[in-house]
Design a protein around this nucleic acid. Structure first.
Length: 265
DNA sequence: ATGGTTGGTGCCCAA
């Protein structure tokens, strides 16, 4: 199986980009974040014509929104509204082979990394706490689960272009990394992408629109992740980032991340 | 220290 995650920053304006991913990488399942559209206005026909007959949505107007596009029929799907608010940031599917996939769009957290001064940062930290509790309460590390999406934290020194310059920047502050590590410990999740690129090597999935030449300045961050429980860790065959998709015409600021895993459908 | 760009919206917000 091949599974992709991609923050597309509006699904309706990125249809040709999704088509390119579908044709070139041929994922069985594509998880999207920041679809920015209510369920009724989702471009169903275009996506189904690409071969993704099964579409699970948790969308909202203008902001956030997640989707799972699948060639394989899911057994069931569900969404959780973490931090008890209206944000649509999670959707999950369970397949007939027992594999469960959780697609997340974790809050970005605003500009100021202080939960007392900045409600958005507080929201982000609480979101991590609730997701951690949810997995501890409802799932076990013996379950076959993939957790993926735009987690909006670059945890490792070489997940950002300058560790030193970003220590006080939201996405790379010690408190956020601590929250992410607590989530990682909840089910002993494995970072499937870093297994294939040594921690000493720079690896990014996002480059700001605010750099004139993203390729030249290369001031990226690894905000998008794919994790697996220990139960399926040994089935993982490959994990990588499709950097070239950041260089398409009118691109998303994120690149897709791909997992190849040896689990029969 | 500041500003830089994009998307969806509606007389700016969020990233």
């Amino acid at each position: 199986m091949k599974i992709a995650t991609w923050n597309v920053n509006s699904v309706r304006i990125r249809l040709s980009h999704i088509e390119k991913l579908a044709i070139q990488a041929k994922p069985d399942i594509i998880c999207l974040q920041e679809t920015k559209v209510v369920n009724n206005d989702f471009p169903f026909k275009y996506i189904k014509d690409l071969g993704y007959k099964y579409i699970e949505l948790h969308g909202e107007k203008s902001y956030n929104g997640v989707a799972i596009l699948s060639k394989i029929m899911p057994e069931s799907s569900f969404s959780v509204n973490f931090v008890n608010d209206k944000d649509r940031r999670h959707v999950a599917i369970k397949l007939y082979n027992g594999l469960e996939i959780h697609n997340f769009y974790i809050p970005a957290g605003g500009e100021i990394p202080d939960p007392l001064m900045n409600q958005k940062f507080k929201h982000k930290l609480s979101f991590f706490d609730e997701v951690t509790d949810w997995f501890k309460t409802n799932r076990s590390e013996k379950d076959k689960i993939i957790l993926l999406g735009d987690l909006n934290v670059a945890p490792l020194e070489h997940d950002v272009w300058s560790h030193k310059q970003l220590l006080k920047e939201v996405s790379h502050t010690p408190i956020e990394v601590e929250k992410m590590e607590a989530l990682q410990k909840s089910l002993n999740w494995h970072d499937t992408i870093r297994r294939f690129t040594p921690e000493s090597e720079k690896l990014y999935s996002w480059w700001s629109y605010r750099n004139h030449d993203w390729r030249k300045s290369d001031r990226g961050r690894r905000l998008d992740h794919i994790w697996a429980t220990p139960a399926i860790e040994n089935k993982v065959k490959a994990g990588y980032i499709l950097r070239e998709m950041r260089g398409l015409e009118t691109p998303s600021d994120h690149a897709p991340v791909i997992l190849e895993i040896d689990i029969p459908e």
